[in-house]
Simulated assay, not measured.
Amino acid sequence: MQRSLKWFASLTTLAMLFVLIGGALVTKTNSGMGCGRSWPLCNGQLVPSKITPELVIELSHRIVSGAAGIMVLILSIWAWRAIGHIRETKFLAAVSFLFLVLQGLIGAAAVVWGQSDFVLALHFGISLISFASVFLLTLLIFEVDKKFDAESLVIDSKMKFHIYGIITYCYIVVYTGALVRHKGASLACPSWPLCAKTRIIPVQLHEWVQMGHRIAAGLLLVWVIAATVRAVKQHKQQFVIYWSWIISLVLVILQIVTGAMIVFTNLNLYIALAHALFISCLFGVLSYLTMLALRSDRQKTESPQSKLSATMK
């Protein structure tokens, strides 16, 4: 496989990470209106005359997102031509670009017309799907050289249940986390893990949003631990499955630790961005496991034995 394509795919994946972190930065610093109600211009100007920190953050995010969009488009076309024979390539190429465009349109609509917090919380999740698609496309490009065997894995039904269930549930956790940010509820509960030292039950909406996310993240940790234990016991010989779950467990723990540190440090910006980074990486790993599980399903239906049994029926 062309080394230049590998490099470009890796850089595009990195660029998409910057888009995700940049979006979190915009939300955390309340910079969404840094350019006013103007898009794609900033305060109606190509070159803004009045520079503020919020303007710099918002405008930088727009520039990075635009550059990433061009890179994703180039990667999609390049991968389509280079490895289009691989079944997943065309689907991932289309999804990565379309969801990035959708993310940009939602962001533009929020600036020009405004949106509710519940709609804005979808913004990060849509960007996450685009990032995961680019990440998977990059892995496909590296897979072509057969540096690691991930095409003929046989995954049992119980492990598939964990994979499909956890990635679906993880997306719900991502939405609840984005809702915490957009609702301004990051510090609604001054204590951790309970909302307050003197009481257990939240008493107002922001506290319920915060505690709902904490409970959802805690359940995600429990489920990932269960899946990792099964991977260690049943899939130790399958290198990709084994290490994917080990990495997933580490990322979940880091995500929860940084979530707690956000409270203890009174919303330290760097910790908050690390919190968004870890959940983004986790979703990428889970997406790869999902692709492997779907491959396993397809291999089972396309195997000679299944075709023979279908013919006999």
Rank of each mutant, 00 (worst) to 15 (best):
Q2C: 01
F8W: 13
A9K: 01
T13Q: 02
M16F: 04
V19Q: 03
G22I: 07
G22K: 02
G22R: 04
A24R: 03
L25Q: 09
T27H: 01
N30P: 04
M33Y: 12
C35A: 06
R37V: 01
N43V: 02
Q45I: 10
P48R: 09
P48C: 08
P53S: 15
V56W: 08
R62P: 01
G69L: 05
M71K: 07
G84W: 05
E88S: 15
L92V: 10
A93M: 09
V95M: 11
F97N: 02
F99T: 14
L100C: 08
L105D: 05
I106F: 15
G107R: 12
A110E: 12
Q115D: 11
F118Q: 03
L120R: 13
L122T: 13
H123F: 03
F124S: 01
S127L: 08
L128D: 04
F131I: 00
A132L: 02
A132S: 15
S133F: 03
V134K: 00
T138A: 15
L140A: 08
L140Q: 12
I141T: 14
E143T: 07
V144M: 05
D145G: 04
K147T: 06
K147S: 05
F148H: 06
E151N: 10
L153F: 10
V154L: 01
D156P: 08
K158W: 10
G165E: 08
T168V: 06
Y175I: 10
T176D: 05
G177Q: 12
A178D: 06
R181I: 09
A185M: 01
L187D: 07
W192Y: 13
I201Q: 14
I201F: 14
I201C: 09
V203H: 13
E207H: 12
W208P: 00
M211I: 13
G212M: 06
H213A: 02
I215S: 05
A217N: 02
L220Q: 09
V229D: 04
V232Y: 13
H235Q: 11
K236I: 13
K236Y: 15
I241F: 10
W245L: 01
W245K: 00
L254T: 03
I256Q: 08
M261R: 07
I262S: 05
V263Q: 00
N268C: 04
A274G: 07
F278E: 01
L282D: 10
V285G: 09
M291T: 06
L292K: 15
A293K: 08
A293R: 04
L294R: 15
L294S: 15
T301N: 03
K307R: 15
L308Q: 15
L308W: 15
A310L: 11
A310I: 07
M312W: 05
